[in-house]
């Protein structure tokens, strides 16, 4: 069990009378590339927010790297090594690409104002180098000095990933990274995520689109109507009648 990085137990969230997430339990081991899929309205985003601390659960626990993080604030969870991207692209628009990424590194290395005043050389160098490395990994070094709002849509996705990488995540959660990309771009992204994973990052891929997940992940968790209905290899999940029903029963454009 010491190999478990993230473990959620009986996670439940009610909004008024609506049960958005109901009794979901799952684990992710170090080094895994796991997909979390489900049709629209399945509760993926809520589950995501519960894990990252944006929404407190009504019931259940989140354990990250052996520590109970239920009810902690997002920044505390982020500092423990959970990096994330946003579905609806939230780069800092008026900051440069490099400065965007550096915020992730500051999150990881600490934000004391005293370091800015006295003796902060080592800290700044560490942040600078970490940010540069992250930009190298996504291939955006040439744009390092550009204002983020001027980047193309596709490049902003990679900027978000770089910013998350700069926090040195032990678990990287990508929220619908393929949204808004065409087939070629999705294929490139899938390739990139696989290489990221091969480089040693544990990834949880939250996706609406099955194609990307089935092609890349070693294990897939399926959510429907707030419940976990399947958890297994892509092949097993694809054959699971409950999954087929969830996807075909709902009028949805999911592939």
């Amino acid at each position: 069990m010491s190999n478990t990085l993230l473990s959620i137990q009986g996670l439940t969230r009610r909004f008024g009378g609506l049960l958005a997430v109901s009794d979901v339990s799952a684990t992710i081991a170090k080094g895994e590339l796991v997909g979390l899929i489900g049709p629209n309205g399945a509760g993926k985003t809520t589950l995501f927010n519960l894990i990252t601390g944006f929404t407190p659960p009504s019931d259940g626990t989140v354990t990250f790297d052996g520590q109970d993080v239920t009810g902690r604030k997002p920044w505390q969870i982020a500092r423990m090594g959970m990096g994330r991207t946003f579905q609806n692209l939230r780069v800092f628009p008026n900051m440069t690409v490099f400065d965007n990424v550096s915020v992730g590194a500051v999150g990881a290395f600490g934000q004391s104002p005293w370091r800015a005043l006295v003796n902060g050389g080592a800290h700044s160098r560490a942040v600078s180098e970490r940010s540069w490395e992250a930009l190298e990994r996504v291939g955006l070094t040439a744009q390092a000095g550009d204002i983020a709002a001027n980047l193309s849509y596709g490049k902003r996705k990679y900027l978000e990933i770089a910013r998350a990488l700069a926090t040195s995540p032990r678990l990287l959660i990508l929220d619908e990274p393929a949204a808004g990309l065409n087939d070629t771009e999705t294929a490139e992204l899938a390739d990139f995520i696989r290489r990221l994973h091969a480089g040693g990052v544990t990834v949880l891929l939250v996706e609406h689109d099955m194609g990307l997940v089935m092609g890349s992940c070693s294990r897939v968790i399926v959510l429907a109507s707030g419940r976990k209905i399947a958890d297994g290899t892509p092949e097993a999940v694809q054959r699971d009648p409950a999954v087929l029903e969830a996807y075909l029963g709902v009028e949805d454009d999911a592939a």
């Binding site: 920044w75 915020v103 926090t167």
Partner: peptide, 16 residues
């Protein structure tokens, strides 16, 4: 500056 641009997002980057 990150705080100004998007404080929720800064929060999830580990900024208090």
């Amino acid at each position: 500056r990150a705080l100004r641009e998007d404080d929720q997002c800064a929060d999830s980057m580990g900024i208090n």
